[in-house]
Protein backbone atom coordinates (compact mmCIF):
# COMPACT_ATOMS: atom_id res chain seq x y z
CA UNK A 1 0.00 0.00 0.00
CA UNK A 2 1.28 3.46 -0.94
CA UNK A 3 1.85 5.26 2.37
CA UNK A 4 2.12 9.00 2.19
CA UNK A 5 2.91 11.47 4.91
CA UNK A 6 -0.13 13.42 6.20
CA UNK A 7 1.38 16.79 5.31
CA UNK A 8 2.04 15.66 1.76
CA UNK A 9 -1.49 14.31 1.52
CA UNK A 10 -2.97 17.62 2.74
CA UNK A 11 -0.88 19.48 0.14
CA UNK A 12 -2.24 17.16 -2.52
CA UNK A 13 -5.81 17.90 -1.37
CA UNK A 14 -5.32 21.60 -1.99
CA UNK A 15 -4.14 20.95 -5.54
CA UNK A 16 -7.17 20.26 -7.71
CA UNK A 17 -5.21 18.13 -10.17
CA UNK A 18 -3.91 15.85 -7.45
CA UNK A 19 -7.01 15.74 -5.29
CA UNK A 20 -8.40 12.58 -6.80
CA UNK A 21 -5.12 10.72 -6.46
CA UNK A 22 -4.81 11.87 -2.86
CA UNK A 23 -8.32 10.66 -2.18
CA UNK A 24 -7.53 7.20 -3.59
CA UNK A 25 -4.59 6.96 -1.23
CA UNK A 26 -6.82 8.09 1.62
CA UNK A 27 -9.37 5.38 0.84
CA UNK A 28 -6.65 2.72 0.65
CA UNK A 29 -5.13 3.83 3.93
CA UNK A 30 -8.21 4.24 6.07
CA UNK A 31 -11.03 2.13 4.66
CA UNK A 32 -10.20 -0.97 6.70
CA UNK A 33 -9.95 0.68 10.11
CA UNK A 34 -13.06 2.76 9.46
CA UNK A 35 -14.95 -0.29 8.25
CA UNK A 36 -14.35 -2.11 11.53
CA UNK A 37 -15.40 0.83 13.64
CA UNK A 38 -18.63 1.09 11.66
CA UNK A 39 -19.20 -2.65 11.47
CA UNK A 40 -19.08 -3.04 15.26
CA UNK A 41 -21.77 -0.38 15.54
CA UNK A 42 -24.15 -1.50 12.80
CA UNK A 43 -23.26 -5.24 12.97
CA UNK A 44 -24.36 -6.09 9.42
CA UNK A 45 -21.75 -6.14 6.67
CA UNK A 46 -24.10 -4.61 4.07
CA UNK A 47 -25.01 -1.72 6.35
CA UNK A 48 -21.35 -1.17 7.23
CA UNK A 49 -20.55 -1.08 3.52
CA UNK A 50 -23.23 1.57 2.92
CA UNK A 51 -22.13 3.71 5.84
CA UNK A 52 -18.48 3.43 4.81
CA UNK A 53 -19.32 4.56 1.27
CA UNK A 54 -21.30 7.52 2.62
CA UNK A 55 -18.38 8.38 4.89
CA UNK A 56 -15.94 8.58 2.00
CA UNK A 57 -18.38 10.40 -0.26
CA UNK A 58 -18.96 12.99 2.44
CA UNK A 59 -15.24 13.34 3.04
CA UNK A 60 -14.74 13.82 -0.74
CA UNK A 61 -17.34 16.58 -0.72
CA UNK A 62 -15.63 18.32 2.19
CA UNK A 63 -12.06 17.65 1.11
CA UNK A 64 -11.46 21.18 -0.15
CA UNK A 65 -12.49 22.52 3.27
CA UNK A 66 -10.05 20.30 5.17
CA UNK A 67 -7.31 22.62 6.46
CA UNK A 68 -5.30 20.10 8.42
CA UNK A 69 -6.33 21.47 11.82
CA UNK A 70 -6.77 17.88 13.02
CA UNK A 71 -5.28 14.59 11.88
CA UNK A 72 -6.80 13.13 8.72
CA UNK A 73 -7.56 9.92 10.61
CA UNK A 74 -9.43 11.89 13.31
CA UNK A 75 -11.33 13.91 10.73
CA UNK A 76 -12.35 10.75 8.86
CA UNK A 77 -13.22 8.93 12.04
CA UNK A 78 -15.56 11.75 13.12
CA UNK A 79 -17.31 11.71 9.75
CA UNK A 80 -17.68 7.93 10.05
CA UNK A 81 -19.11 8.23 13.56
CA UNK A 82 -21.61 10.90 12.44
CA UNK A 83 -22.64 8.81 9.47
CA UNK A 84 -23.09 5.80 11.75
CA UNK A 85 -25.27 7.76 14.18
CA UNK A 86 -27.32 9.12 11.27
CA UNK A 87 -27.82 5.59 9.95
CA UNK A 88 -28.82 4.22 13.36
CA UNK A 89 -31.26 7.08 14.00
CA UNK A 90 -32.87 6.59 10.62
CA UNK A 91 -33.23 2.88 11.27
CA UNK A 92 -34.68 3.60 14.69
CA UNK A 93 -37.29 5.91 13.18
CA UNK A 94 -38.12 3.32 10.55
CA UNK A 95 -38.58 0.62 13.19
CA UNK A 96 -40.57 2.89 15.49
CA UNK A 97 -43.35 2.97 12.92
CA UNK A 98 -43.42 -0.86 13.08
CA UNK A 99 -43.42 -0.81 16.92
CA UNK A 100 -40.14 -2.75 17.05
CA UNK A 101 -36.80 -1.99 18.71
CA UNK A 102 -33.88 -1.51 16.37
CA UNK A 103 -31.61 -3.40 18.78
CA UNK A 104 -33.85 -6.50 18.66
CA UNK A 105 -34.00 -6.33 14.86
CA UNK A 106 -30.22 -6.00 14.61
CA UNK A 107 -29.64 -9.00 16.85
CA UNK A 108 -32.20 -11.07 14.91
CA UNK A 109 -30.48 -10.13 11.67
CA UNK A 110 -27.10 -10.99 13.16
CA UNK A 111 -28.30 -14.52 13.97
CA UNK A 112 -29.00 -15.18 10.33
CA UNK A 113 -26.08 -13.12 8.98
CA UNK A 114 -23.69 -15.21 6.86
CA UNK A 115 -20.92 -12.75 7.73
CA UNK A 116 -21.20 -13.46 11.47
CA UNK A 117 -19.48 -16.57 12.72
CA UNK A 118 -19.82 -16.11 16.48
CA UNK A 119 -21.19 -18.79 18.77
CA UNK A 120 -24.02 -18.39 21.27
CA UNK A 121 -21.82 -16.66 23.84
CA UNK A 122 -20.57 -14.18 21.22
CA UNK A 123 -24.16 -13.50 20.20
CA UNK A 124 -25.14 -12.89 23.84
CA UNK A 125 -22.22 -10.51 24.21
CA UNK A 126 -23.48 -8.63 21.16
CA UNK A 127 -26.95 -8.54 22.72
CA UNK A 128 -25.46 -7.10 25.91
CA UNK A 129 -23.46 -4.48 23.97
CA UNK A 130 -26.61 -3.50 22.12
CA UNK A 131 -28.23 -2.47 25.41
CA UNK A 132 -25.74 0.41 25.72
CA UNK A 133 -26.42 3.90 24.39
CA UNK A 134 -24.70 4.60 21.05
CA UNK A 135 -21.82 6.68 22.38
CA UNK A 136 -21.12 4.33 25.27
CA UNK A 137 -21.20 1.42 22.82
CA UNK A 138 -18.66 3.19 20.64
CA UNK A 139 -16.33 3.76 23.60
CA UNK A 140 -16.75 0.16 24.71
CA UNK A 141 -15.96 -1.15 21.22
CA UNK A 142 -12.85 1.00 20.88
CA UNK A 143 -11.52 -0.12 24.23
CA UNK A 144 -12.65 -3.73 24.30
CA UNK A 145 -12.16 -4.79 20.69
CA UNK A 146 -9.34 -2.50 19.60
CA UNK A 147 -7.62 -2.04 22.95
CA UNK A 148 -7.14 1.63 22.18
CA UNK A 149 -5.53 3.95 24.70
CA UNK A 150 -7.89 6.36 26.43
CA UNK A 151 -5.76 9.26 25.14
CA UNK A 152 -6.30 8.13 21.55
CA UNK A 153 -10.03 7.61 22.08
CA UNK A 154 -10.19 11.06 23.69
CA UNK A 155 -8.54 12.64 20.64
CA UNK A 156 -10.83 10.80 18.25
CA UNK A 157 -14.08 11.54 20.06
CA UNK A 158 -13.22 14.88 21.62
CA UNK A 159 -14.16 13.62 25.10
CA UNK A 160 -12.01 13.87 28.23
CA UNK A 161 -10.08 10.83 29.39
CA UNK A 162 -11.90 10.86 32.74
CA UNK A 163 -15.30 10.80 31.07
CA UNK A 164 -14.18 7.95 28.82
CA UNK A 165 -12.93 5.91 31.76
CA UNK A 166 -16.21 6.41 33.57
CA UNK A 167 -18.17 5.56 30.44
CA UNK A 168 -16.23 2.34 29.89
CA UNK A 169 -16.54 1.38 33.53
CA UNK A 170 -20.34 1.79 33.45
CA UNK A 171 -20.54 -0.07 30.16
CA UNK A 172 -18.69 -3.05 31.60
CA UNK A 173 -20.98 -3.05 34.65
CA UNK A 174 -24.09 -3.00 32.47
CA UNK A 175 -22.81 -5.83 30.27
CA UNK A 176 -21.87 -7.91 33.29
CA UNK A 177 -25.32 -7.40 34.77
CA UNK A 178 -26.98 -8.35 31.51
CA UNK A 179 -24.87 -11.48 31.02
CA UNK A 180 -25.32 -12.63 34.59
CA UNK A 181 -29.03 -12.73 33.92
CA UNK A 182 -28.69 -14.35 30.50
CA UNK A 183 -26.04 -16.97 31.14
Amino acid sequence: MEKIDEKELIQMFSDENQRRKAFSILVKQYSESLYWQIRKMVLSHDDANDVLQNTFLKSWDNLSQFRGESKISTWLFRIAVNETYTFLNKERQRNQSNFTDLEDVMIQNLQSDPWFSGDEVALKLQKAIMTLPDKQRLVFNMKYYDDMKYEDISEALGTSVGALKASYHYAVKKIEAFLSLEL
Partner: peptide, 25 residues
Protein backbone atom coordinates in the same frame (compact mmCIF):
# COMPACT_ATOMS: atom_id res chain seq x y z
CA UNK B 1 -15.20 -12.17 28.43
CA UNK B 2 -14.10 -8.61 29.17
CA UNK B 3 -10.70 -8.90 27.65
CA UNK B 4 -9.33 -7.13 24.64
CA UNK B 5 -11.40 -8.86 22.08
CA UNK B 6 -10.88 -9.83 18.53
CA UNK B 7 -13.26 -9.20 15.72
CA UNK B 8 -12.97 -12.62 14.11
CA UNK B 9 -16.66 -13.22 14.80
CA UNK B 10 -17.34 -10.73 12.05
CA UNK B 11 -16.51 -11.79 8.52
CA UNK B 12 -16.62 -10.07 5.20
CA UNK B 13 -16.47 -11.07 1.53
CA UNK B 14 -13.07 -11.90 0.06
CA UNK B 15 -11.23 -8.98 -1.57
CA UNK B 16 -13.84 -6.71 -0.07
CA UNK B 17 -11.57 -3.68 0.33
CA UNK B 18 -10.22 -3.91 -3.24
CA UNK B 19 -13.76 -4.13 -4.57
CA UNK B 20 -14.82 -1.34 -2.27
CA UNK B 21 -12.15 0.97 -3.66
CA UNK B 22 -13.11 0.15 -7.23
CA UNK B 23 -16.83 0.68 -6.50
CA UNK B 24 -16.14 3.96 -4.75
CA UNK B 25 -14.06 5.18 -7.71
Amino acid sequence: FIEPGDRTVFKMPENYFKDFEANLE
